[in-house]
Design a protein around this nucleic acid. Sequence first.
DNA 1: CCCTCTGGTTCATTATTGTCAACAGTAGTT
DNA 2: AACTACTGTTGACAATAATGAACCAGAGGG
Lengths: 269, 269
Amino acid sequence: MSSTVAKALTLLDHFSENEPELGLSDLARRSGLDKATVHRMLSVMADAGLVEQRHDTKLYRLGAGILRLARIREKAFPFASVLQPELDRLAQETGETAHASLISGRALATVGICESSKANRVSLVVGEVLPFHATASGIATLAFGTEELSARVLTGPLDGKTSFTLTDPGRLSALIETARQTGFGETDQTNEIDVYGIAAPYFDKTGLACGALAVATPSHRMTEALRGKIVGAVLRAAQVITSGTGGKQPTGYAETVRRTLALLPDGSA
Amino acid sequence: MSSTVAKALTLLDHFSENEPELGLSDLARRSGLDKATVHRMLSVMADAGLVEQRHDTKLYRLGAGILRLARIREKAFPFASVLQPELDRLAQETGETAHASLISGRALATVGICESSKANRVSLVVGEVLPFHATASGIATLAFGTEELSARVLTGPLDGKTSFTLTDPGRLSALIETARQTGFGETDQTNEIDVYGIAAPYFDKTGLACGALAVATPSHRMTEALRGKIVGAVLRAAQVITSGTGGKQPTGYAETVRRTLALLPDGSA
DNA sequence: CCCTCTGGTTCATTATTGTCAACAGTAGTT
DNA sequence: AACTACTGTTGACAATAATGAACCAGAGGG
């Protein structure tokens, strides 16, 4: 559980849009590791190009190697490029903030965002790592992902992000089952106060969920009509992304979506 | 000297556009490490999201975490976005393949490419890691980078990529000095047979080279006139990128460029 | 001048890691 | 079917590399 590379790589998790540059002591404190350890790790990661150190401020930031790797990944498996347009459309259509994520090891990586144009909107930090158990995206992904993944999440630690977070494996499992039957995930303030999330999974070519498309709205703004509109829009957008990236829906999913859409008030079509 | 994380991270170097997916044994063979070792490393890297394993073929590929990190880096320090247009313009203007790279630890990372429209052109593999000592970009970068970096390269191993590669520290050092006086780097077939490279450095806000912009042409096509055109175009494009990314030229560099441009046949302006 | 930050370094202790072997599964031959 | 050759995967032990407390040097601040 405590492999050295694992510890080194968790250092990368502390970088975000808000804090793109971090100092040595700072990183040591956050990661709970010793300064010397962190220093050595950063040095070799700098050698590999994953991070780089500014010679003036001595602060560390993500390195150019990342860009190179991203290019390879994107060239071989285009995702961001087909994702972004759909994301923009979704945000425009629902009037709320839309974001997309992909399974990234033990968590979800946010790989795309389009914020609502409304003044009062949900604002997301680019590059944040989202926990499976506390987000609509996570629930949606788990519901249609491998049995092994959900097992690992359910048996792992379930941090209480807010007072609404489901920290009980049983209740969490039930929520996932609900998502499996409706075809989408739904959470209210389980990851952040006053944020309501609705998310639909998209699938890889083996029919397994590899991530989710989500719309986040301020909880107090949520109404039955808005909910219907969002669910419909998200489900359809996710289907577009699935096919756009060469994915395939699992058998029965199309039928599940059809049934869900039929139950919505109206606002869809 | 051979830290575990370093070894783990070198595994990433073997992925490229041509081979975006690699198997365990394959990676073990290339890296010279034991299968079991590689397996453990890949497992933890998969946990962190740097790589992911396809459940069907068992092959490994770069993971979604990379995309997340790239987003952060790009949001905080836009580079690819300001780079690409200039790269396209450069390729169009010279009629040859243009590419850009950034210092990435012990090597250069290719972060942008725009291929020539000519049928006979230099074609580059996206995401390849370029050695400093055998490329025009490397020479240009070393000439205007930190003393420490060039020292590290000069004392390190100098692999002979072709029969033209300078593997002697003394001659290499002389080549770098030439670049320092002309303001650009130039190599002929030192990294790949029949490829002529001309590269100009761009600078960060401290006035140190952080990478280079290069034009690669088939060696046999190179003439004095074409050379002049390319040198002028590359130098000017690099200056645009430097200022476009908030960089600053070191004192005297503008003068160096002016002198170089004055010596060119014509084809510039 | 002292105090407290910062990044960086050293070195004996100890735990992680590399190694090697065996195992299971698949594909292609014979 | 049995044999081969190749995958990816797991376990146990010896050896190496990671660890973390203490320590340096420098930059502000009071």
